[in-house]
Simulated scan of single mutants.
Amino acid sequence: MRILVVEDNEGIAAGLRSNLMQRGYAVDVCATVAQAWGALTAERFDAVLLDLGLPDGDGSEVVRRLRAQIARPGLSPLSQLKPLPDPSTPVLILTARDQVQDRVAGLNLGADDYLVKPFDMDELEARLRAMMRRAAGQASPVIRYADLEVDPAAHIIRKAGQKVEISPREFAVLWALLLARGRVLSRPQIEEHLYSWGDQVESNAVEVYVHHLRKKLGQKIIVTMRGVGYFMPQEQE
C-alpha cells in the first residue's frame, strides 16, 4: 500500500515515513502544494496524509482540486492525454489546527478524516486503514475470501484457519489484488502499490511475488491474464 505524505516539517515527515515503512507501507514525501499535486497527477496512491500549513499555500487546496477531478464529456483528445488524479483517493488531514471550525471545514471540503498533532502512530495507522477500507467498500476490518482470512492491521493471513507467513511486499500484492478483485491489475499498477520514489524496481518482482503467493495460498488464488496482468476472481468457492 502506497502513501503520499505532504508535510513541510522535515522531522515530522521523516518520522512518518520511517514509521509507516516499518509497518509495511511504501511512502513518498512532498513538502508543498505544487509538489503534492504533481505527485498525484503522475502516480496513484492508496491514501494521502496532508498537512495544511504548507510553504506555497494551504493544504486544503489539494483536497479541493482532487475532489474536483470529475470526468467531463466533450474534452478534446489532447486534454484527455493528460492523466487525472483519482478523485476518490482517501485523504487524512494532519494538522496543528485544533478548532472545531477547522475540522468541519476540512471534512466539508472532502477530506475523509482529520487528526490533530501531536498524534499517536497506532491511532494514525488505525484511521488510515479504516479510511482505505471505506474507500474500497469494505466494512469489516478482516477480509474473508474463499478459505482465506486477511487482517491488514496485523498483516496476518490465515488459510483454513492456519497462519501463513508472507513478506510485507507479498502482502501488499495480495492486498492490492484483493481490494480490486474482479478487475485486472497490470504489472505497473501493482508496482505502484509496492515502491516509493527512488526504490529500485526489479523487472520480474511482481511475477516472483505472485509465484510465492500461489505456492503459499493455492495456484488458483491469482489468475494471470496473459499480456495484461493479474486478478483475483470476484468470488471463489
Rank of each mutant, 00 (worst) to 15 (best):
M131A: 15
K216C: 09
D56G: 05
V210G: 08
V5K: 00
A105L: 14
A105W: 10
L148C: 10
K117E: 10
A172E: 03
A126H: 12
R226Q: 11
Y230C: 04
V142I: 14
M132K: 15
G198T: 00
L194G: 00
M132I: 13
L217R: 02
N204F: 05
R44F: 03
S186P: 05
V208E: 12
A126Q: 14
N9R: 13
V100D: 05
G24A: 08
R169H: 09
A153W: 08
S88A: 13
I156D: 02
D113T: 06
V173K: 00
A14Q: 10
V5G: 05
I143W: 08
M132N: 03
R134V: 12
R134E: 14
V5M: 03
G110L: 07
P90G: 07
L128M: 13
Q219G: 01
S203T: 12
S186T: 13
R129T: 11
P85M: 07
G227H: 06
K216I: 09
L185T: 07
V91C: 08
L78C: 03
A172F: 00
P118Q: 04
G110P: 08
G229T: 04
I93N: 04
F231D: 09
M232N: 00
R187D: 13
A36Q: 04
D151K: 13
G218Q: 04
Y230R: 09
A135K: 11
I221P: 01
R2D: 13
F231Y: 15
L148W: 05
A14L: 09
R103M: 15
P152N: 08
L94H: 05
R226L: 08
A31M: 02
S167C: 07
D147T: 12
S60E: 08
E235I: 12
A135P: 04
A126P: 01
S18P: 01
T32L: 10
V48I: 11
R158M: 11
E170C: 11
D58E: 15
G106Q: 05
L20P: 12
A135Q: 13
L178P: 11
V5L: 06
Y230L: 06
I156V: 15
L40I: 07
S203V: 13
K216D: 10
A180H: 04
K215G: 14
V228P: 01
M21H: 11
E10Q: 14
T41L: 09
T41M: 11
A111I: 12
L92G: 08
V201W: 02
V5A: 12
R158L: 08
L78E: 14
I12Q: 10
E237T: 13
S18Y: 15
E237L: 15
